Lab assay of single mutants.
Amino acid sequence: MQRVNMIMAESPGLITICLLGYLLSAECTVFLDHENANKILNRPKRYNSGKLEEFVQGNLERECMEEKCSFEEAREVFENTERTTEFWKQYVDGDQCESNPCLNGGSCKDDINSYECWCPFGFEGKNCELDVTCNIKNGRCEQFCKNSADNKVVCSCTEGYRLAENQKSCEPAVPFPCGRVSVSQTSKLTRAETVFPDVDYVNSTEAETILDNITQSTQSFNDFTRVVGGEDAKPGQFPWQVVLNGKVDAFCGGSIVNEKWIVTAAHCVETGVKITVVAGEHNIEETEHTEQKRNVIRIIPHHNYNAAINKYNHDIALLELDEPLVLNSYVTPICIADKEYTNIFLKFGSGYVSGWGRVFHKGRSALVLQYLRVPLVDRATCLRSTKFTIYNNMFCAGFHEGGRDSCQGDSGGPHVTEVEGTSFLTGIISWGEECAMKGKYGIYTKVSRYVNWIKEKTKLT
């Protein structure tokens, strides 16, 4: 034993070699072989497995989906700052455009905790909710729209109204504003409101030439003092309507412009014939205590009207009353817009006519005020429907199939267009061939041609 100890002390290297040989010859039971080890760690190889990531292109799944990435790591994937920024906006807080917040056709661009709407022409605001041009839906104005110097929408209202708090709607500024039905039992019968379409306001006024200088022999019209197929109006439903009495009662109609003036057809009036105007009328054979009678003290036909040349060209006249009318729910003026808007309103496509005229061709006159909704007829169809001249200051309205029309005794009465609950004068009943005849239409004086003249002559002093 002493000898062994001496050998170990003198030859430590020998001992180490012996131990190493023993270990190498022993069977290893701690580690699995290569094949079995792979069965336990069965993990798919990654895209760049075996390579240094710093030297390969980034992978979106590896960089940002398996674990949260930084902007720089995302930049490695896209290799483009702009594309990385677009991805980053949604990656950080989701897609803010998912709810489609942009209105009126706006395009949404996502941002971090926010979004941006790219608005089409005519709109602005956070969600493109603000109209900035009158060309689109009248700028959301209830009545009139004008573009300011910086191309912003400025709404306005006709006389007797003021802008509401929203700067879009119009509200009454006087007790009985024009064009409004205020009798409670008839307010439910107000005709369907007309909503502004998209309009090209630059070209809204037709490029028409008034044929002022045409000389033409007097034409022989049949029954051209021209509501057939209409309905009984309720008291106060058309408070701007008046009836004219002269040699015979209810020979023509008219509309209240203001307390002192009536507008009617020029062919209705004769110099030297006494005319009485009755406002607030409903049943011409009954006294309903809503009527107001006034005498006409002055007749002003349009300066281009000449019955000797043509009885229905420039067929418009103004009547001055001896005493002002007292405005109330049964006696209310009709609204008159400017030339541009009167023309736009007419193009809405349908209007209402009213009167006490004959209820059928050569038949009896109506006792109760009649009204009828009539569609506008395109000019080409209008011209083809008659052998008589249709001037540019006239328009056609009615039904091709016949059966409904204005008729004798309705002449001078109103053709009105309702705009968001307020009625505007767009025409004056003038003439036609018979009444409600198939293929024939009622012919009306186009008020847009005469609004400046009306307003100039009827100013209240």
Rank of each mutant, 00 (worst) to 15 (best):
L19E: 00
V92C: 11
A307Q: 12
C128D: 03
R62L: 12
Q241A: 12
A149G: 06
A436P: 15
G94E: 10
F31A: 13
K311A: 12
L211C: 12
S70G: 14
F176D: 02
E35C: 05
E116N: 12
D95M: 09
D405P: 13
G412Q: 09
L60M: 12
N59P: 03
N48G: 04
I214Y: 12
M394K: 06
P172Q: 09
R180Q: 06
T417I: 09
N328C: 03
M65P: 15
T84Q: 13
V56Q: 09
T417A: 08
L376F: 12
D111N: 11
T461R: 04
G402Y: 13
C155K: 00
S107M: 07
N138I: 06
G439D: 09
D110S: 13
V228L: 04
E76D: 15
E320P: 00
L372W: 11
E54R: 13
D338M: 04
A436R: 12
L41F: 11
N304D: 14
F348R: 12
R62W: 06
V359S: 14
V296K: 00
G412F: 14
P324M: 04
D378P: 10
K260D: 02
R191W: 06
N135I: 15
L369T: 12
I300N: 02
S148C: 06
C435S: 06
G229Y: 10
E159R: 04
R62E: 09
T218N: 10
Y391R: 10
V174K: 09
S220W: 03
I299E: 06
C268F: 00
N36E: 08
K362I: 05
F196N: 11
S184A: 09
L14T: 03
E54L: 04
G229D: 10
Q216P: 10
W453P: 00
A265S: 11
S182T: 08
R83S: 14
V56Y: 08
F78Y: 14
T287V: 13
P172C: 03
L52Y: 09
F238H: 04
E285F: 12
N48T: 14
E270A: 10
N306M: 07
R226M: 10
Y330K: 07
T215L: 06
N304T: 07
I15S: 02
I40M: 14
K347M: 14
I309L: 11
C28R: 00
T85K: 07
G21A: 12
L211V: 10
K146P: 01
F238L: 05
E53S: 08
D95T: 12
E259T: 06
C128M: 02
Y22R: 02
L103I: 04
C18P: 01
L23R: 01
N100M: 07
T342C: 03
C18A: 07
V77P: 15
W356A: 07
W118P: 15
C108Q: 02
G442D: 04
E67T: 11
C268D: 01
E281V: 12
K347P: 01
E231K: 07
G432E: 13
F176H: 08
A207W: 12
N166A: 03
G357E: 13
F399D: 12
A149Q: 09
K387R: 05
V77A: 10
T84P: 15
F55H: 13
L376M: 05
W356V: 12
P333L: 00
P177M: 01
N138S: 12
G106F: 03
H302S: 03
Y352E: 02
K293Y: 12
V248W: 08
T271Q: 08
E61I: 07
I299K: 09
N80R: 14
E270D: 14
F424P: 00
F31D: 08
T215Q: 03
I15G: 02
F399G: 10
G230C: 12
E159Y: 05
K260N: 05
V419N: 07
F360A: 07
F123P: 07
M65W: 06
E66K: 09
N166R: 02
F224D: 10
C157L: 00
K247E: 05
D322F: 01
T386P: 08
E82C: 08
N222F: 12
G427V: 01
K109D: 11
L23D: 02
D249W: 03
V30K: 14
C157K: 01
G402K: 13
S182C: 03
Q90N: 13
N127H: 15
E66I: 04
V326P: 01
L211E: 05
I256N: 01
Y201W: 06
C128P: 02
T461C: 08
H361C: 08
Q216E: 10
S385E: 11
C335A: 00
E142A: 04
P375H: 13
E434W: 14
P333M: 02
H415Q: 00
A26W: 00
G229L: 12
C28H: 00
E420H: 03
T84S: 09
E72V: 15
Y22H: 06
W453H: 00
Y305T: 02
G363K: 14
F71H: 04
G427L: 01
E53A: 09
T215P: 08
A207V: 04
Y22W: 13
W88L: 12
P301A: 08
T190E: 07
N38P: 15
K274N: 10
Q185L: 08
I443V: 06
S107N: 09
I428L: 15
L41W: 12
F123C: 04
K347W: 05
W356C: 06
F176M: 04
T386W: 13
F87P: 15
F224Y: 11
Y391L: 11
H415L: 07
E82L: 05
I297C: 04
V154R: 07
W431T: 05
R46I: 09
A265G: 03
M394P: 02
N304W: 10
A307N: 08
S448G: 13
G58Y: 03
K446D: 15
Q143V: 00
F31R: 15
S114R: 09
A397P: 01
A397H: 02
P101F: 08
R449E: 15
V419S: 05
Q241F: 14
E418T: 07
E288F: 06
F121L: 11
N452T: 11
E142L: 03
C134N: 02
T215F: 13
G409R: 10
G427I: 00
K274F: 07
H34G: 03
C335E: 02
K39N: 07
T290V: 07
Y352S: 14
T276H: 04
Q143R: 00
E165H: 05
L367G: 13
F121E: 11
S11I: 14
Q241R: 04
F123Y: 07
C69E: 03
H303F: 10
V269M: 06
A250W: 06
L425D: 01
I309G: 08
A337W: 02
C28A: 07
N36K: 13
G106Y: 04
K188S: 09
H314Y: 07
V359C: 05
N203Q: 05
L189E: 11
T133K: 14
V181N: 06
T133C: 06
G413L: 15
G421Q: 14
P324L: 03
G272C: 05
N42I: 09
R358C: 09
E281C: 10
C145F: 02
E73K: 05
R379Y: 14
K234E: 10
F55L: 11
L325W: 04
T381P: 09
N42D: 13
Q241N: 11
E340C: 03
V331A: 09
D95R: 15
I136P: 14
N100S: 10
N313T: 09
E259K: 11
K457D: 02
G412R: 03
D315A: 02
E53H: 05
R3F: 09
E288G: 03
V416F: 09
D110P: 15
I316K: 01
T426Y: 01
E116G: 14
A207R: 04
D95S: 14
V416S: 10
C117N: 03
F360Y: 06
Y371T: 13
R373D: 05
N222K: 07
M65E: 13
E259P: 05
H303E: 13
D198Y: 10
A233Q: 06
K339E: 15
E61S: 15
S70R: 14
T84I: 05
K152W: 06
G13S: 10
A207N: 11
S448M: 02
